[in-house]
Design a protein around this nucleic acid. Structure first.
Lengths: 344, 344
DNA sequence: TTGAAAGCGCTAACAT
DNA sequence: ATGTTAGCGCTTTCAA
């Protein structure tokens, strides 16, 4: 149970602690013979570095913190997986925190990560406004990249997708399938993703003369339950439009299910689209047409930005906003494109 | 960017670092006046403890490590959520690692957690045999609890559900619905969950005279894809039995989907059951009958065991195996019970 | 009640 | 090429 220290290794190998350190952290010159002795002794004793002590000394932990709104949302878990993978290549580890969509918990997590001396933080903020103080404060102390969502009025690096361009593709596709009216089902406008997605949706719908009734813009949260509830409400208030555009796949899953439950055929009577392309989106009946986010790419860019920020350190350069273009994945919840009509 | 240290707070408050420490870690006696001065100074400077330094000194981190086979499996993420919640009440944080179902990665994660001086480790081992050395070695150094799955031949605390009892309920229910033949679709027998679940399934099937053809026990992995592939294989090799019993919900999701795709009505022609009760299990068409695992309870017990192990420290008491009884959640993928036949 | 000082395990000057 | 030593920021004796 007693931890083996560098001093014990040094004693056993008959050298100084400095030499052991040099060997084990592969810095500085050591003769082959001594190196062998040291490694031998370390193995015999089952030595393991004390990362804590090393971190205190180096003020570097080779650890990156990540905070996501919900660890049970498959989009975020797959994003986490991508980030962990990208970090692995740099020899860094990930410290993952779940904010439970609560800016207060989020603030605590951020503070705690900072106190742990993580080398940088990747955060997908829970709230477009309320997350600001904590995110900004954290960004002032150490490298921070916002992922997917961002907080209003903060100046930090950001990586995500071009929601407006994505929604343009979605609306075009629905229009090709014959949709002339549509509803939007999203979360409250409490974070940038919904805002952007809605803006993109609305703009393109207008351009294509697709009718969007004001009371057919329904805002709740990113959950299956909300998707189900929204459809019930639409039906109660006068029926469904040609298409239901959802701000994420969880909502779309609930929407699809509710449509079928209420006897509406998807996509024959009503087309449905999601966003994110989580694994389960292909499993529902019918499989969901959705927007695929290039997670690996997003993760790679985030890690790169973090590394860059860590390097320059003192001088805070201008911040980067990297937005990648997502692709539309057409499955069975929308109507097959019949010879796309000419559009301007 | 410069971190505020206890020394700066001490200077500003006009006291010694020892006093500051006493105030901030609320140990030892300090006069009210001095306490106020110190808190004031700390606030002014925006002081935050350096968890690293504290950990080095105390050799306690108030952090628990958790290693799961796959962070994209919703069962594990919801388990993680429960664990994090339970730990929060103890003022501890969670360091989460994904082993990607690979014992080698798992071993690295465990070593890295140990090196980080976590106070304890919760692990759901990736492999029933290959995970042994790393798990055992780690358990020798610090408090460790296995969750859900366990490694063959290790002696550590364990918390999970009674798979055999659960499968008994499943088989009884299917039998009530008229099933007289069944197939089992699981992962390779590389971890305890499948083993136990299969054992429970087989025993009860025998007792009830339900036919299980040897070539209708199909083993792959815990994934939707495998569920789909398994059904294709069954159909190719002579058709489906009355019931398809799956070792987890992901498999069952794939199985259900494949059945429908091949034109088999669920549950009219073939009944399907899952295991875990992940959120998505109620979303498929038809919603899945499955075994609900009491995650919060499992998490709470695990945290309790860890705390206990951390306390006694020196003397390693006997290890606890806590198995909770899960409940069957009947949905639409099995036939409604018509007046249960008398069983012995 | 408060302060001085040692030391947790490690690394990096600096010295040899 | 190797050793000596100071010190990262904190807590905790021990003295006063």
């Amino acid at each position: 149970m007693q931890r083996v220290t560098i001093a014990q290794v040094a004693e056993r190998a008959g050298v100084s602690t400095a030499t052991v350190s040099r060997v084990l952290s592969r810095r500085g010159q050591v003769s082959a013979a001594v190196e062998r002795k040291v490694r031998r002794a370390a193995d015999d004793l089952g030595y393991q570095v004390n990362v804590i002590a090393r971190a205190l000394r180096n003020s570097r932990t080779d650890t990156v913190g990540m905070v996501v709104p919900s660890i049970t949302n498959p989009f975020f878990t797959s994003l986490v997986e991508s980030v962990e993978h990208a970090l692995g290549k740099e020899g860094k580890e990930l410290f993952l925190c779940d904010a439970r969509s609560d800016p207060q918990i989020e603030a605590r997590r951020l503070a705690s990560l900072a106190a742990r001396n993580v080398d940088g933080i990747i955060v997908s903020p829970s709230h477009g406004v309320d997350s600001r103080p904590a995110v900004q404060q954290t960004a002032d102390r150490l490298p921070l990249v916002q992922l997917d969502r961002f907080v209003d009025g903060t100046t930090t690096d950001w990586v995500g997708v071009d929601d407006v361009a994505a929604m343009r593709q979605v609306v075009d596709h629905l229009h090709d399938g014959g949709a002339r009216s549509a509803a939007f089902i999203g979360s409250l406008m409490t974070h940038s993703s919904t805002e952007q997605r809605f803006a993109g949706f609305r703009r393109r719908a207008e351009e294509l003369n697709i009718e969007v009734k004001p009371d057919q813009v329904l805002l709740g949260d990113y959950s299956v339950e909300w998707g189900e509830a929204a459809v019930a409400r639409l039906i109660a208030e006068g029926g469904l439009p040609d298409a239901l555009v959802c701000a994420d796949d969880l909502i779309a899953l609930g929407v699809t299910r509710a449509c079928r439950a209420h006897g509406f055929a998807v996509p024959r009577q009503v087309q449905v689209t999601g966003y994110d392309d989580i694994e389960f989106s292909r499993l529902t009946e019918p499989a969901l047409t959705t927007v695929h986010q290039p997670r690996d790419r997003i993760a790679a860019e985030a890690v790169r930005l973090l590394a860059a920020a860590g390097a320059k350190d003192a001088e805070r350069g201008p911040h980067a906003h990297i937005s990648l273009v997502p692709t539309l994945v057409v499955r069975d919840s929308t109507r097959a494109t019949q010879a796309p009509s000419d559009r301007i």
